[in-house]
Amino acid sequence: MKKVLVACGGAVATSTVAAGKIKGLLKENNIEADVQQCRVSELASKADSADLIVTTAKVDRDYGVPVIHGIAYISGVGIDKTNQEVLDNLRS
């Protein structure tokens, strides 16, 4: 099963919203994946075990794993495009 890390500053507010939306999206599309939340500061040590990272914070570091900027899950602007990116990444 693929693993998605959803990160924000404190792993409380925005990542909860984004993780909720991503779980819904995956369910609709019948994709099984483990969606977990964490803080941005924990990404470096958790990235190894993940297949995809979605962050609401804009990270400019390379973790060796695809990173999607998931701000659309919070702002609502451009959410279809972000959804597509997530699906493309998990289907490939």
């Binding site: 924000c8 404190g10 507010a13 925005t14 941005v40 914070a57 804009k58 400019d60 702002s75």
Partner: peptide
């Protein structure tokens, strides 16, 4: 759109200062 300051915490210079 008014959003959470968490958006800034991924910036590498913010990370370094933190």
């Amino acid at each position: 759109i008014g959003l959470d300051p968490a958006l800034l915490l991924g910036n590498s210079q913010v990370v370094a200062a933190s």
